[in-house]
Design a protein around this nucleic acid. Structure first.
Length: 270
DNA sequence: ATCGGGACCTGCTTGC
DNA sequence: TGCAAGCAGGTCCCGA
C-alpha cells in the first residue's frame, strides 16, 4: 500500500490519539516481518510514554525517552488506532496497547518492520537515506547536481531511496508524466530546466496526495477505508490502454527494474 | 561506483 | 468451478 503520502497520512491520523499516552502492554502475535520484531518489546515499552511521532522517508519513528520504535509498512502494511479488546484479524501481527486504545499493525505480506533503537542515535537503516522530496533543499538545482554522470533511467533514479526517499512506483510514474519526461530517459541527460520540472512535479504530486489523504483523517480511527487519495484517479498509473487525460494518446505500460511503468507516448519524451 | 536481478511473503485477479 | 500463473503500492543484498 504505502507510498510516502499514506505514511504521512497515517502519522497524522494516529498521532492525536497517542501522543503523551503511556504504553500499557505490547502484544506480538507474529514476529516474522522482514526482520523479527524484538521479542522483549513489551518489556522495553511498557510504562513508557510516547513523546513524538515523526516520519523519515517511509519510516514512522515513535520516540520514547529511552529510544525509538521504527515502523515500516512495507507493501501491504497499515496502522489503526482501535479500542482495547477489538478481536485481531489473521494478519494483525503487533499491538501497542495504550490503556483503553490500541495501535495495531496489520501486514499481510509481512514486508514491514518494527524495530527498536535504544538511546538517541538514529537507527542504522536511516543512515543511508536520500533527501526528503518535500524539504526545501530538494529542487531542480539539487536534482541537476545529484544526477550528473548517471545513466540510470529517470524512473529508477527517482525511486532509489539512496537519492530521493518516498517516491514509490505510483508517484514515480505520475511525476514523470506531469513533468513530460519519458521514464527511460537517462537521468544524467536532463538539463537544468527539465530537472526543475521533475523536482517540482514530484513535490506537487506528493503534496497533493497528502492533502487528499487529509480529507479522510477523521475516518482514520475505527475504519478500514482507504485514504482518499487512493481512490483518486491517477493520470497514468494503472491506466494502460486508456486515453491520456492531457493529450488523448493511449497510455502504455512497460517493465522497468521489475516494476510496471506507465507513461504517455504523446506527452513524455526522452 | 553503478546497475540489474533475485529474494522476502500473501492475496487477489486472470485465463485456461 | 477449479487451478495455476501472474501481478501487487518496498527494500535489501548480491554479483557483474
Amino acid at each position: 500500500m504505502p507510498e510516502l503520502p499514506e505514511v504521512e497520512t497515517t502519522r497524522r491520523g494516529i498521532a492525536p490519539h497517542l501522543l503523551g499516552v503511556t504504553v500499557s502492554r505490547v502484544v506480538i502475535r507474529n514476529p516474522s516481518l522482514r526482520q523479527p520484531i524484538p521479542a522483549d518489546l513489551d518489556l522495553t515499552l511498557s510504562g513508557r510514554t510516547l513523546q513524538s511521532i515523526r516520519r523519515r522517508a517511509k519510516y514512522l519513528l515513535l520516540a520514547f525517552d529511552h529510544g525509538c520504535l521504527l515502523l515500516h509498512l512495507g507493501m501491504s502494511g497499515s496502522l489503526r488506532v482501535i479500542g482495547l479488546n477489538t478481536p485481531p484479524g489473521k494478519h494483525d501481527h503487533l499491538d501497542l496497547e495504550f490503556g483503553d486504545r490500541v495501535l495495531r499493525l496489520r501486514d499481510p505480506r509481512r514486508f514491514g518492520l518494527a524495530l527498536w533503537q535504544p538511546g538517541a542515535e538514529p537507527h542504522p537503516l536511516l543512515g543511508r537515506l536520500g533527501i526528503e522530496p518535500l524539504d526545501d533543499a530538494f529542487d531542480g538545482a539539487w536534482l541537476y547536481r545529484a544526477s550528473r554522470g548517471r545513466k540510470t533511467p529517470a524512473k529508477q533514479f527517482v525511486m532509489d531511496g539512496h537519492h530521493i526517499v518516498g517516491v514509490g512506483n505510483i508517484y514515480a510514474s505520475e511525476s514523470l508524466h506531469s513533468a513530460r519526461i519519458h521514464p527511460a530517459t537517462p537521468i544524467g541527460t536532463l538539463g537544468p530546466r527539465r530537472c526543475a520540472r521533475l523536482a517540482e512535479a514530484i513535490r506537487q504530486t506528493l503534496g497533493a496526495a497528502i492533502e487528499a489523504g487529509g480529507s479522510t483523517l477523521r475516518d482514520f480511527v475505527h475504519s478500514d477505508g482507504k485514504p482518499g487519495y487512493f481512490q483518486h484517479r491517477h493520470q497514468v498509473y494503472d491506466r494502460a490502454g486508456q486515453p491520456c487525460p492531457q493529450c488523448g494518446r493511449t497510455i502504455r505500460v512497460m517493465q522497468m527494474g521489475q516494476r510496471s511503468t506507465y507513461y504517455c507516448p504523446g506527452c513524455q519524451h526522452r
